[in-house]
Computed example of a mutant assay.
Amino acid sequence: MEKQGAAKRVGIVEVAEIAGVSRQTVTRAMNDMPGISAETKKRVLEAAERLRYRPSRFGRELVQQSTRSLGLVVSDLANPYFSEFASEVAKVAIANQWTLVVMEKHPGPESGKEELRALAGQVDAAIAYADLPPKDIDSVFGSLPLVLLDTAERTLDALSPSYPRSALTIDLAPGLAQAIDHLVARGRSRISLVDITYPKGESVRSRVYTALMRDRGLDPHVVTVASMDDDLSVGRCAAEIALNAPAPPDAVIAFNDLSALGVLKELRDRGVSVPETCAVVGIDGLKIGVFVEPELTTLRLDFAAFAQMAFDSVVQMSNAPASGPLLQIRKYAAHELVVRKSA
Rank of each mutant, 00 (worst) to 15 (best):
K3W: 10
R9L: 14
V10M: 05
E17L: 14
I18T: 13
G20S: 04
Q24W: 05
T25Q: 12
T27M: 11
T27H: 12
A29E: 04
M33Q: 10
G35T: 09
S37H: 01
A38I: 10
E39R: 09
L45H: 09
E46T: 13
A47H: 02
A47S: 15
A48P: 01
R50K: 15
R50L: 12
L51P: 03
P55R: 08
R57S: 14
R57Q: 15
R60P: 02
E61N: 15
L62F: 01
V63D: 00
V63N: 11
Q65L: 11
Q65K: 14
S66A: 15
S66H: 14
S66C: 11
V73M: 08
Y81C: 03
F82I: 00
S83Q: 01
S87D: 10
E88Q: 15
E88T: 09
V92S: 02
V92A: 07
I94A: 13
Q97L: 04
W98G: 06
L100Q: 03
V102G: 01
E110P: 01
E110C: 03
E110V: 05
E115H: 07
A118G: 13
L119C: 04
A120V: 04
G121W: 09
G121F: 04
Q122I: 05
D124L: 05
Y129T: 13
L132W: 02
D136Q: 14
D136Y: 01
D136M: 08
D138N: 11
F141L: 06
G142N: 11
P145F: 02
D150K: 03
D150H: 08
R154L: 06
R154I: 06
P164M: 08
R165C: 02
L168T: 00
T169Q: 12
T169I: 14
I170A: 11
D171R: 05
A173Q: 12
A173I: 03
P174I: 00
G175N: 03
A177K: 14
A177N: 15
Q178H: 11
I180L: 09
S189G: 06
I191Q: 00
D195P: 02
I196W: 00
Y198R: 13
G201S: 10
V204P: 07
S206T: 12
Y209G: 01
A211I: 07
A211K: 15
M213H: 13
M213K: 10
R216S: 01
G217R: 13
L218Q: 07
H221D: 13
D229N: 08
D229L: 08
S233R: 10
E240C: 07
I241Q: 10
N244W: 05
N244R: 13
A245T: 07
P246W: 07
D250W: 01
V252L: 05
V252I: 15
I253S: 03
N256V: 08
L258I: 12
S259K: 05
G262C: 04
V263H: 05
E266V: 09
R268G: 12
R268P: 08
D269C: 03
D269K: 09
R270W: 09
S273L: 15
T277G: 09
V280R: 07
V280P: 00
V281S: 04
G282K: 06
I283D: 09
D284G: 06
D284N: 14
L286Q: 13
K287A: 13
K287W: 07
V290K: 10
E295L: 06
T298P: 00
L299Y: 02
A304L: 11
A305M: 09
A307N: 02
Q308T: 11
Q308P: 01
M309I: 12
A322H: 13
A322Y: 12
G324K: 07
K331S: 15
V338S: 03
A343C: 14
A343M: 07
